[in-house]
Simulated assay, not measured.
Amino acid sequence: MALNPRKASSSKAMADAASWLCACFLVTLILLCIFSDSSVVGEDDEGKLRGKRVLSKACDEIYVVGEGETLHTISDKCGDPFIVEKNPHIHDPDDVFPGLVIKITPSHNN
């Protein structure tokens, strides 16, 4: 049985329309994600407070060293100039590696 040429062209047209609809939907989702992320980084006071809360979470009392961090950068970031003194398990300040757990006691609130 051969396919009716009208049905074949009709099926192709429907498939093309569905493809365009999916493409438009994906583009809309991407644009919504981009604009919703940029709206969080606003200059309003509430956004600034949320940002400070998020940043302060990185310097909780227990801190896990990340890739490329040094005791100096952690000290600057968290406001704790006495990391080595408060962490007796750190024998060599130059031997800090990702995953090392240290105690942070900030000297001031951010």
Rank of each mutant, 00 (worst) to 15 (best):
P5M: 08
K7N: 03
A8S: 05
S9E: 08
S10T: 02
K12G: 02
K12W: 04
A13P: 00
M14Q: 09
A15K: 03
D16S: 10
D16K: 11
D16E: 09
A17S: 09
A17E: 06
A18R: 12
W20N: 13
W20R: 14
L21P: 01
A23H: 06
C24L: 08
F25S: 15
L26N: 08
L26Q: 12
V27M: 06
V27G: 06
T28F: 11
T28P: 01
L29F: 12
C33Y: 05
C33W: 01
I34L: 09
I34F: 05
I34K: 07
F35T: 12
F35V: 07
F35C: 06
S38A: 13
S38F: 03
S38N: 09
V40N: 04
G42T: 01
G42C: 03
G42F: 00
E43G: 13
E43A: 15
D44P: 00
D45R: 14
E46Y: 06
K48G: 11
K48Q: 08
K48V: 08
L49R: 12
L49E: 07
L49P: 02
R50M: 03
R50V: 06
R50L: 01
R50G: 02
K52G: 11
K52P: 00
R53K: 08
R53Y: 02
V54Y: 04
L55Q: 12
L55H: 05
S56D: 13
S56A: 12
S56I: 02
S56L: 06
K57W: 02
K57E: 13
A58D: 09
C59A: 12
C59R: 04
E61L: 08
E61C: 06
E61Q: 11
I62T: 15
I62F: 05
Y63C: 04
V64W: 00
V64Y: 05
V65Y: 01
V65I: 13
G66K: 14
E67N: 12
G68I: 07
G68Q: 06
E69W: 02
E69D: 13
E69N: 08
E69S: 12
T70Q: 01
L71R: 05
H72L: 13
H72D: 08
H72V: 14
H72C: 09
I74Q: 00
S75N: 01
D76G: 09
K77I: 04
C78T: 10
G79H: 01
G79I: 05
P81C: 13
F82D: 15
F82G: 11
I83C: 08
E85D: 13
K86T: 12
N87P: 03
N87T: 08
H89K: 15
H89A: 15
H89N: 14
I90D: 00
I90E: 06
I90H: 01
H91Y: 10
D92H: 04
P93Q: 11
D94S: 15
D95H: 03
D95R: 10
D95M: 11
P98H: 07
V101C: 04
V101T: 14
V101G: 07
K103F: 00
P106Y: 11
P106I: 14
P106H: 11
S107H: 10
S107T: 14
H108E: 15
N109K: 15
N109G: 14
N109Q: 13
N109C: 12
N110C: 05
N110P: 00
